[in-house]
Design a binder for these strands. Structure first.
Lengths: 201, 201
DNA sequence: ATAATGAATATATTATTGATTATTCACTAT
DNA sequence: ATAGTGAATAATCAATAATATATTCATTAT
């Protein structure tokens, strides 16, 4: 039987493969990257890649998931940045997200293509990412409750709603529709709305 | 020279053509519908269609725009429905929109394909539709201001923000991601958020 | 003039083929 | 046993040929 816990070499090789793949994807895109090329970059035969990944798609998937995880890390920096109150953090979070996606949509579109492809065949990847984003939003909301800025009863439900309400600034699909300035205005408008609501007080 | 105001026959023929086209689109999709088929359905030659529309794309565009206009009409029924207060109207508006799009995304996907195609080459169609939706939302907000339910300073800006915040329930792209019940929950959550906000009062 | 057409041409779609690439497998080295 | 390979096969992609469709135009009918 195979070992319950894969050994270090296994993990290291997998990482190397993802590194090589990501580098290729960035330069030539997912579709134009061959197994043989990845194998050569990492110094093994194409056949041997299959000892580490089930197929080409799994390499792309691993790469996409790692990129998405890195993005969560970037966002969590905002969430934990000292000297910002919860209002500011929420705005920062949404705007930063927008800027990141706008950048990526233009400059670094090759990785976007990858994420798009992976996501289309594997919804679970989206679900996981969304859950993590909701987790970060929930952190901000909890902080706001602690500091008495907010008075939120159901933090998780509210975090989910905010995630839904800001989806437009989170998804590359829309980002071609308007110039960035307009998106910033829209994002700020939505944040204002979330913070204050519309009912008379 | 051609008459400044096209005569009745012109308009009637155009309408008939759009009718025939829509029927074909619904059954076979935009791509599989030929000019010859539309022409036959309406009892004329393919060549003659060009007296009424510049090209195939223009027929599709006219059809898509008519469908979108019909949808605005449906939504405006809610906005003007008596016996609902502004809170209820806003919720109704968002949920109705969601249900309509969910239906369409599944059942009647052929027309969606059409809208998608048209929209891809002509962003103006989207802009116009969005402006109309914002107009309806602004109506609801104004009613809420009159009835003292809301206290909104900038109605138009707020309407724009609500439009952005509810885009997820408005765009077929997302609607495959979750079952309808979950979307309803999400939509209600977002409406709650918009109505009450999160800042302590 | 205006409405309409059939036939001619330009454009786009689909089917076919050949070439490339992914994946498997029998086998070798450690 | 585990890591690896080259060669065989299966799946996919890209180029081309064949077909179908969109569009134009010269001409006819009203």
């Amino acid at each position: 039987m195979s070992p319950a816990i894969p050994n270090e070499t296994m993990d290291d090789n997998r990482r190397q493969i993802i590194d090589a793949a990501e580098n290729r994807y960035r330069n030539y895109g997912y579709g134009k990257t061959t197994m043989a090329e990845i194998a050569e970059d990492v110094g093994m035969s194409a056949a041997n890649l299959y000892r580490y990944f089930k197929n080409k798609h799994e390499i792309g998937s691993a790469c996409a998931q790692r990129c998405m995880a890195e993005r969560i890390d970037q966002l969590s920096v905002i969430v934990r940045k000292p000297g910002l109150n919860a209002h500011e953090k929420l705005r920062s979070y949404v705007i930063e997200n927008l800027m990141y996606n706008y950048q990526n949509a233009g400059v670094d579109q090759k990785i976007n293509e990858l994420v798009q492809i992976i996501v289309n065949e594997n919804k679970d990847v989206v679900y996981k990412q969304v859950e993590k984003e909701i987790g970060l939003l929930a952190e901000i909301l909890s902080q706001g409750n602690s500091s008495k800025e907010f008075a939120i009863e159901n933090v998780l439900r509210t975090a989910r709603s905010i995630q839904s309400a800001t989806i437009m600034f989170n998804v590359p699909t829309f980002l071609g529709l308007y110039p960035i300035e307009q998106f910033q205005e829209m994002a700020n408008g939505v944040v204002d709305l979330i913070l204050t609501g519309i009912s008379k007080r």
